[in-house]
């Protein structure tokens, strides 16, 4: 039976009714209706469901929803604000780091979590950091380019 659960998502407390066996991903999509996080495999293999838990990227399909009640959850919907896109989002747009877009929320969340902790990455670091994100469309060239550009941009504006 669904149980009440309060989650702090993108800075907001949300009171939800959630099945005890639901993953955080199912909870975000089915109950919170934040459908930006994508289900590409439901097995931890693709990274499309990546969100930040207390700032760290995790595959939300591998997290039990009810275990996340004391964490700060950031999803793709939480990055842009009224002033516009986050630096990572902007870089993906400008550098053409996306095609079908299904992997993109996950990639952007991985990159966001990574850059917060590693402001001066090498290209090799970036490729390692997104090693858990599958993208079938882009070949990663422009994704890596976008993340490097976002890092530079964030350093400048910091």
């Amino acid at each position: 039976m669904k149980q009440p659960l309060t989650l702090k998502i993108n800075g907001e407390n949300r009171l939800l009714l959630v099945e005890p066996f639901y993953s955080l991903l199912d909870c975000l999509r089915d109950e919170a209706r934040l459908t930006g996080s994508k289900k590409g495999c439901d097995e931890g293999d693709c990274g499309a469901c990546t969100v930040l838990l207390d700032g760290k990227p995790v595959t939300s399909c591998l997290v039990l929803a009810h275990s996340a009640h004391d964490a700060e959850i950031t999803t793709i919907e939480g990055l842009a604000d009224v002033d516009g896109l986050s630096p990572v989002q902007k870089a993906f747009v400008e550098h053409g780091g996306l095609q079908c877009g299904f992997c993109i929320p996950g990639l952007i969340m991985s990159a966001t979590g990574f850059l917060q902790a590693n402001p001066e990455p090498t290209e090799e670091d970036v490729r390692f950091a997104i090693g858990g994100n599958l993208c079938r469309c882009t070949g990663y060239n422009r994704v890596v380019e976008a993340i490097m550009a976002a890092a530079a941009e964030m350093r400048e504006s910091a």
Binding site: G44, L53, K56, V58, L62, V63, S110, G113, A129, G132
Partner: peptide
């Protein structure tokens, strides 16, 4: 081991 998202869990 895996990727960072799994390692974090």
């Amino acid at each position: 081991f895996a990727g960072v998202q799994v390692r974090n869990l």
